[in-house]
Simulated scan of single mutants.
Amino acid sequence: MIVERPSDARGHARHGGWLDSRHTFSFGQYYDPQWMGFGPLRVINEDRVAGGGGFAPHGHANMEIVSLVLDGALAHRDSTGGGGTIGPGELQLMSAGRGVQHSEYNASATEPVHFLQIWIQPDRVNTAPGYAQRAPREDDAAGGWATLLSPDGADGSLAIRQDARLLQVCLQPGMQASTRLDPARRYWLQLARGGITTPRALAAGDALGFIDEGGALDLTAGPDGAWLLLFDLPRD
């Protein structure tokens, strides 16, 4: 089964003139019982934060919280001492564990920041909080799959507390990429930027979910290229 999630069907929220957010799954004041998550993948928010804006210190527990910057720069601070500024293509992982306070602010007073915030439910609870960053690499834009998150930190990825992987591929116009789907797993394909023409025409913000699907997944970038994220998740 293939599940479609068009960009314009997502939830939409604006706050205080500084935040414009699109919600793939139910979040905050946006609630849709048909879109509560996809396996342990609970949140994909596409956030645009105006210069000088941001999320004041607040708490989370027992969630793997991932931020991927598309444009601009995001400044993070948390109660474990973790923190830093992340720029385009950089990934941040905060394992909230038994509880952590954190803030996220636009690192610029004037320019917007555009990023994805992703929440993945961990497979263990009340662990020690943790923080890590992954800088972009030269081969990230070479048209091959790069592993951003994995259970064991393989291939220079960040280690996540779940049997899940996050992969990305960045394709130039007309370029192709392929991977194989295991029907014993479930997959979520999120288009961060650009567009693809196969297996279906998708634009930025669109997504497909794959359940009980096996075999090759062949992708072809559209005329603007494509930046794609693939979540490899446990079936149940």
Rank of each mutant, 00 (worst) to 15 (best):
D71E: 15
D71Q: 15
G72L: 11
G72Q: 04
G72H: 02
G72Y: 04
A73N: 00
A73Q: 09
A73K: 03
A73L: 05
L74Y: 02
L74K: 04
A75M: 05
A75W: 10
A75K: 15
H76S: 08
H76T: 05
H76E: 07
H76Q: 13
H76C: 06
R77E: 06
R77Y: 01
D78A: 02
D78Y: 04
D78V: 04
D78Q: 03
S79I: 05
S79G: 12
S79M: 14
S79Q: 09
S79W: 14
S79L: 10
T80I: 07
T80A: 09
G81I: 04
G81Q: 01
G81D: 12
G81T: 03
G81R: 06
G82P: 08
G82Y: 00
G83A: 03
G83T: 07
G83M: 01
G83S: 02
G84N: 06
G84E: 06
G84V: 08
G84H: 08
G84W: 12
T85D: 09
T85L: 11
T85E: 15
G87W: 01
G87K: 14
G87E: 13
G87A: 14
G87V: 14
P88R: 13
P88C: 12
P88K: 04
P88A: 15
G89P: 00
G89H: 11
G89C: 13
G89S: 13
G89D: 05
E90W: 06
E90P: 12
E90C: 13
L91S: 05
L91G: 02
L91F: 01
L91Y: 03
L91W: 06
L91I: 14
L91C: 03
Q92I: 05
Q92H: 11
Q92K: 13
Q92C: 10
Q92S: 13
L93W: 14
L93V: 04
L93E: 00
L93K: 08
L93D: 04
L93I: 07
M94Y: 07
M94L: 15
M94H: 08
M94D: 05
M94E: 08
M94K: 04
S95G: 15
S95P: 13
A96D: 02
A96V: 08
A96L: 07
A96G: 04
G97R: 03
G97C: 12
G97T: 04
G97W: 05
R98I: 02
R98K: 13
R98D: 14
G99T: 11
G99E: 14
G99C: 13
G99H: 10
G99P: 14
V100Q: 06
Q101C: 00
Q101T: 12
Q101N: 10
Q101W: 12
H102I: 09
H102Y: 11
H102L: 10
S103W: 07
S103R: 07
E104V: 01
E104P: 02
E104A: 09
E104L: 12
Y105G: 00
N106G: 00
N106D: 10
A107D: 11
A107P: 04
A107Y: 08
A107L: 09
A107F: 10
S108L: 06
S108A: 11
S108H: 00
S108E: 00
S108W: 01
S108Q: 10
S108D: 11
A109F: 14
A109N: 15
A109H: 14
A109I: 04
T110A: 15
T110Q: 11
E111Y: 01
E111N: 02
E111R: 12
E111T: 07
P112C: 14
P112L: 08
P112G: 09
P112M: 06
